[in-house]
Amino acid sequence: MTDCEPDPQARRLVIRESLSVGIATGLYGVSFGALAVAAGLDVWQAMALSLLMFTGGSQFAFVGIVAGGVSAAPAAIAASSLLGVRNMLYALELTQLLGLRGPRKLAAAHLTIDESTAVAVSQQDVRASRLGFWVTGAVIFGLWNLTTLAGAILGNALGDPRRWGLDAAACAAFTALLWPRLRNRQAGAIAAVAAVVAVVLAPSQPPGVPVLVAAGAALLAWRAPGPREAREGAAEGSAP
């Protein structure tokens, strides 16, 4: 890609950053694959999510909700889609940075996730941004799919997922995805309201529905956060 050639040293730095982010992220496809089969998906269904959906937070949410039974599938689609809305915001920023047209735009869209965006927007010049986006996205795509397959096969071999704590691994994974987003008091308030609403509704509502209603807590962000808590940025943290 001749439009992605920063000077050699900047190039090495971007590639190193992309590889470290990509490898760290790609590896936890193992946990996704194992959780997917624990939730009742087969290996091919787990692979289809990683190949076609390819946005970790949505994938974890989808399998977390269908674990409650296939009747929860519509709620699982809704939750994974709402989580995917942030990728649209990332794409808005990236599309100017990348300057693509035609089929490359389709490839860029598929690789538009938290990490590729974070690496791209944190570079000093546009050529480094483009290189960082493609290397990070491609490394994660390759590794995420390989490790999903490994995790799904491993998960099948383990038998009862509860005995190995795989259901609790999902809770821990969601906690880790949420953590870097709790950057200010408004974020904390939104998380607290959503958690309470979901738990209060859970005994009376079908699986998945409490989570969707709780998503309404995001409307608290309609008001801008106060001056002390105003720092906002796209694509920070370590969520997939």
């Binding site: 942030r86 309201v193 959503a194």
Partner: peptide, 14 residues
């Protein structure tokens, strides 16, 4: 839209 993941992930954890 940026706050949606926060609300959804918190609800899933809870």
């Amino acid at each position: 839209t940026a706050a949606l993941p926060i609300a959804l992930l918190a609800a899933l954890v809870a």
